[in-house]
């Protein structure tokens, strides 16, 4: 046991870990937002609700079908991603060409509907979700105790983030995607089915949110408002990082999570607001965002 700046190492590293966990979710969610925005030109306000649906789907699968965490990790993103595809076909395809304002308002309305629906059936108190057996317990690292599940969340979200980055920046399909973001008409002329690609991209972005939801279920309570709490912070993260760069979204998410965790140690009163304060500073110093192209 030792102290750093008068703070016991246990508390410091503990909060740092929580910061990293939050950062994983910020990274996953802002990544999904950026991918969707790039392709659909829509800020997906429903993202938080879809993250919440992911957590609830995992909870319901366990409760009613006895399907464990590992099954949920694969099945839930597919299910919720499919629901995202339905949403895109039913609603979003009609507003993509309009002013961006309408996309935001439409997805906000969808988020309200989903949240209201879940509150009706599950109340707002929240349900616990067990950490899977395989990841119970933790490691004593000497300077801190590292729960296995938290280590897994950080590692796995890093893997997912970089796999997404790789798929978009380094593969052939990703190059089509980037090309269609720049100039959809021209890409269509080359015989690529852009509307289908748009639909699939939205489904993929939503699946990422749902995956984050499954991973969040054992850490936070599964509750209907977990999505709206996080989505506004993620918006601030996106403003700070700018949506021009995939890697930028990932790095910004993790860094801001850590900063938030450290604030909890040194000045807990400001831990709710620190990300917004950073956003204000970034807007003053670098209005385009840290990784943003001027937009």
């Amino acid at each position: 046991m030792f102290e750093i700046f008068g703070i016991p190492s246990q508390a410091l590293f503990g909060q740092l870990l929580i910061g990293l966990i939050n950062g994983s979710f910020y990274a996953l969610l802002s990544l999904g937002l950026a991918v969707i925005f790039g392709m659909l030109n829509i800020i997906n306000f429903t993202h938080g609700a879809q993250y919440m649906m992911g957590a609830f789907a995992a909870y319901l699968l366990l409760q009613y079908l006895g399907l464990n965490y590992w099954v949920a990790l694969i099945v839930v993103p597919i299910l919720i991603g499919a629901s995202g595809i339905v949403v895109e076909r039913l609603f979003l395809q009609y507003v993509r060409k309009l002013d961006q304002v309408y996309g935001l308002i439409l997805t906000f309305g969808l988020a309200l509907m989903i949240e209201g629906f879940f509150r009706n059936y599950f109340g707002s108190s929240g349900e616990p979700y067990q950490v899977p057996d395989l990841l119970q317990g933790g490691q004593n690292l000497g300077f801190m105790f590292l729960p296995n599940y938290r280590a897994w969340v950080i590692a796995f979200s890093l893997i997912v983030c970089f796999a997404t980055w790789f798929a978009i920046e380094q593969t052939r399909f990703g190059s089509y995607l980037r090309a269609a973001t720049e100039n959809p008409t021209l890409v269509r002329a080359f015989g690529i089915n852009v509307p289908r690609m748009v639909t699939l991209t939205y489904g993929f972005g939503v699946a990422l949110a749902a995956l984050a939801g499954v991973m969040a279920a054992p850490i936070y309570n599964v509750s209907p408002q977990m999505g709206s709490d996080v989505i506004i912070v993620v918006f601030a993260v996106v403003v700070i990082g700018g949506m021009g760069s995939i890697l930028g979204a990932i790095v910004t998410g993790f860094v801001l999570g850590i900063v938030e965790g450290l604030t909890k140690v040194f000045y807990p009163e400001a831990s709710d607001t620190v990300i917004f304060v950073i956003m204000v500073i970034v807007l003053l110093v670098r209005p385009a965002g840290l990784f943003g192209r001027s937009a």
């Binding site: 609603f91 308002i105 439409l106 906000f108 309305g109 969808l110 988020a111 309200l112 509907m113 989903i114 949240e115 209201g116 629906f117 509150r119 009706n120």
Partner: peptide, 9 residues
């Protein structure tokens, strides 16, 4: 909340 959301949509 659901009704409000539906009106938005």
């Amino acid at each position: 909340l659901v009704i409000q959301g539906a009106i938005f949509v």
